[in-house]
Design a protein around this nucleic acid. Structure first.
Length: 427
RNA sequence: GGAGAGGUGGCUGAGUGGUCGAAAGCACUGGUCUUGAAAACCAGCGACGGGCAACCGUCCCAGGGUUCGAAUCCCUGCCUCUCCGCCA
């Protein structure tokens, strides 16, 4: 949520910042709501003050045995007036909340303007795509040759955008997740965390998926939603908390499945594992002091990059433009990994600083020793990295002319020392 | 699933209709003492909203209700704990 003070006092500044996303702030509605709020809040509080005053004197009069009839008469019509004013106030506040909860975060000054990924800014790249002296297969064909990826069976069991992994490929998928968890806990100092995969609406509002993006989520009965990312349960770990400064920054790593409706992406990436309803992701989450969050974003992004570097996968880093920025993010770096079959870089990690946007929604605070007062935390997160897409990248980048796939050195300990995934006849 | 107990400030915990935003302790902050620290003693110390301010309002899990007045009484929901049953 955008700081309400900022919205009230400097709406033009907010409007200018939102324009970087290609959004127009409805300042008229905002001003009207604010004016109305002021009227009803003043009126309500005046009536409340009066009621409190008279009620107090009734108490005193009774205690000293005086008659209270006159006082009771003076308060007679008050209740009704108060109810009315309070109701009006609540209504205006509700409309204000609906309005502001639907406003995305303000992009940082370093976010390039633009509407599409064409406007994203390339920051750096790492590694060089292998020169292949054969026509590369995509992961679907490679996975079929290894008898390890089966989209048809998954479609029968569940539907489109699911996969069944078996044998060596299933193990490689697990090896990737294990490798990432070990790297982040042992080398990068994260605390491992296991969380619910079903969450309530409040948590989703906290991180910003609700109320605006319900159509992207799988809702199950009993008011639960399947998590679209571990960001939701992990960040909400701090919801309603006031953390002591010595616990900051709090840094979590979680390996979870993620579930997304992918509504509105009907024609896109229909082949293969790139865009699935269910995929695994290793997620990095920081809860930090406000002054630390920009450094945190750089550090966290570096940790995600380490995964790709150790896997020796060529990638590049881009600074997302305003139009490509997620709802809650103030700034996002995407890591894009090289896919030989598509001869292009595809997103495999997204690292964002949310500043206090999520923290304000979920009331995640820390106690600032300078002031002794609670203050909003900053939240930062990023994939470190998407496991399904990492599997795709490994299969495609490590493929050999005969359809076999070399196992990256760092994964071999997780594969019982296996160095090559060999094509197998399907069962 | 059955039976019971309970949700109060950063924490523990008192408070069962009227100066209660809430006792006490811990923690924290400042001071005295000390070479320094600890201990002891003294003082301060909730959050949120509105207002230039004085100040006002709201908040004792959440939502309703009763009342001039609710932390306190009533209803509903959520959550936690204990015992039994079942179970990975």
């Amino acid at each position: 949520m955008i700081d309400p003070q900022l919205l009230r006092k400097t709406p033009q500044l907010v409007a200018d910042r939102l324009a970087v996303r290609g959004l127009t702030l409805d300042q008229e509605t905002l001003a009207a709501l604010e004016a109305e709020r002021k009227i009803w809040q003043t009126k309500t509080e005046q009536l409340q003050a009066e009621r409190n005053r008279i009620s107090k004197s009734i108490g005193k009069a009774k205690a000293s045995g005086e008659s209270v009839d006159e006082l009771l008469a003076s308060v007679a019509g008050l209740g009704k007036q108060l109810d009315e004013a309070a109701q009006q106030l609540q209504q205006v506040q509700q409309r204000w909340d609906d309005f502001t909860l639907a406003l995305p975060n303000l992009p940082d000054g370093s976010v390039p303007a633009g509407n599409s990924d064409a406007d994203n800014k390339l920051l750096r790249d790492w590694g060089t795509p292998r020169g292949l002296d054969f026509e590369p297969l995509d992961h679907v064909d490679l996975g079929a040759g290894l008898a390890g990826l089966d989209f048809e069976t998954a479609a029968d069991i569940a539907g489109s955008r699911f996969v069944v992994m078996t044998g060596q490929v299933a193990r490689l998928h697990r090896a990737l997740a294990q490798f990432m968890l070990d790297l982040h806990t042992a080398d990068h100092g994260y605390e491992e965390i296991y969380t619910p995969y079903l969450v309530n609406a409040k948590s989703l509002q906290g991180t910003g998926q609700l109320p605006k993006f319900e159509e992207d989520l799988f809702a199950v009965s009993d008011d639960y939603y399947l998590i679209p990312t571990a960001e939701v349960p992990v960040t909400n770990w701090a919801a309603g908390q006031i953390l002591a400064v010595e616990h900051l920054p709090k840094r979590f790593v979680a390996h979870t499945p993620c579930f997304r409706r992918e509504a509105g992406s009907y024609g896109r990436d229909t082949r293969g594992m790139i865009r699935q309803h269910q995929f695994d992701k290793v997620e990095l989450v920081w809860l930090s002091r406000p002054e630390d969050s920009w450094n945190a974003l750089e550090t966290l992004t570096g940790h995600a990059e380490q995964v790709l570097q150790k896997l020796d996968l060529p990638y590049r880093v881009v600074n997302l433009c305003g139009g490509d920025l997620g709802f809650s993010a103030a700034k996002t770096y995407d890591l894009e990994v090289w896919l030989p079959s598509q001869k292009t870089y595809r997103e495999i990690s997204s690292c964002s600083n949310f500043l206090d946007f999520q923290a304000r929604r979920m009331q995640a605070r820390w106690r600032d020793p300078e002031t002794g007062k609670p203050a909003l935390l900053h939240t930062i997160n990023g994939s470190g990295v998407a496991v399904g897409r990492a599997l795709v990248a490994v299969l495609e980048n490590y493929q050999q002319a005969d359809g076999s796939v070399a196992v990256p050195t760092v994964l071999q300990p997780y594969m019982g020392g296996l160095e090559i995934l060999a094509p197998t006849a399907a069962t």
